[in-house]
């Protein structure tokens, strides 16, 4: 567990014995912009163990995407260390074990739904028949059956995000990084997506680092919440989310434990939101 973990509940991972997959130590990110320097991430350290679902929670602009991009190797870090399975993450070098779902819509508009989902398998050279079977299963799992041959522009935002999710999941990444994948969706669609994701994750148990600024979402999905402060992003607190699994995205929200933990973290988060506004 990270030494800087906060004063909240003791953070106990769901399977304490498992090995560390992602480790972040003393991570800094300093952006050099036209009007000076901007410290986006300040001395952040945490670990994610095998099979954990960790939510990175914080107000908008606190550096969540920045952290995730550095973990994925998409952005150079300023200081600190990031390791995945003990190997240093090098900027620009993509780790095939890592899957990434973007905050923005990155579905390829010139590919049909099935060609989008099959993209990674196709470029890896998987035989057509084998690929088609896998894609078909993924499409069904995502509730997109019947839309196989559609281009993304004919899909709703929620459906496009499912395509993006399945496009990543079909590669069976061991470590899954997600940057507010449902941020742009309405509440109802979001809950649907939570169901789908929970279903898949509770079966496959990938190691997940999930960025969000939605506390309800973090509580519904994760087994641990790392709370970041307003910019510059610092580690504020670390909460274990111990609700029983399998979880039901809807009824979970009505339980007393949910409400209790919600208001507990909300208080802490509220301070950070106020700090963001005050700036």
């Amino acid at each position: 567990m990270s030494a800087t973990a906060g004063q909240g509940r003791p953070a106990v991972p769901e399977s304490a014995a498992s090995r560390t997959r992602i480790s972040v130590e003393g991570l800094d990110k300093l952006f050099k912009t036209a009007d000076g320097e901007l410290l986006a991430v300040d001395n952040v350290s945490f670990e994610v163990k095998q099979g954990e679902f960790v939510a990175l929670l914080g107000p908008s602009g606190c550096g969540k995407s920045t952290i995730l991009n550095m973990v994925a190797g998409l952005l150079p870090k300023t200081k600190g260390a990031i390791r995945i399975d003990g190997d240093d993450v090098v900027h620009g070098k993509i780790n095939p074990k890592v899957g990434y779902v973007f905050q923005r819509d990155t579905v390829f508009p010139w590919r049909t739904v099935e060609a989008n989902i099959g993209y990674g398998l196709e470029i890896a050279g998987m035989a057509k028949a084998e690929r088609a079977a896998k894609v078909k299963r993924a499409i069904e799992l995502a509730g997109l059956a019947g839309f196989d041959k559609n281009f993304p522009r004919m899909l709703s935002g929620g459906m496009r995000q499912r395509v993006a999710l399945m496009r990543t999941l079909i590669m069976e990444p061991e470590v899954l990084l997600m940057d507010e994948p449902f941020g742009a969706l309405d509440t109802h669609t979001k809950l649907e997506m939570h169901k789908t994701l929970l279903e898949i994750w509770e079966r496959e148990r990938q190691t997940v680092l999930f960025v969000t600024h939605d506390l309800g979402e973090a509580l519904t999905l994760s087994s641990r919440i790392i709370l970041l402060s307003a910019r510059p992003g610092r580690l504020k607190e670390d909460f274990a989310v111990t609700f029983a699994r399998p979880r039901d995205a809807v009824s979970l929200r009505e339980t007393a434990e949910f409400g209790e933990l919600y208001s507990h973290i909300w208080h802490s988060l509220g301070e950070e939101f106020r700090r963001t506004k005050a700036e």
């Binding site: 990434y100 990155t106 390829f108 010139w110 993209y119 470029i123 993006a164 496009r167 990543t168």
Partner: peptide, 24 residues
């Protein structure tokens, strides 16, 4: 981000060119 997404799905520089840059 589309280029990054392709890279993260295993595309080499040349594959990115063929499957993302050119169609786009």
């Amino acid at each position: 981000d589309q280029i990054a997404a392709a890279r993260l799905l295993g595309a080499s520089e040349l594959t990115v060119l063929r499957t993302v840059v050119i169609p786009s």
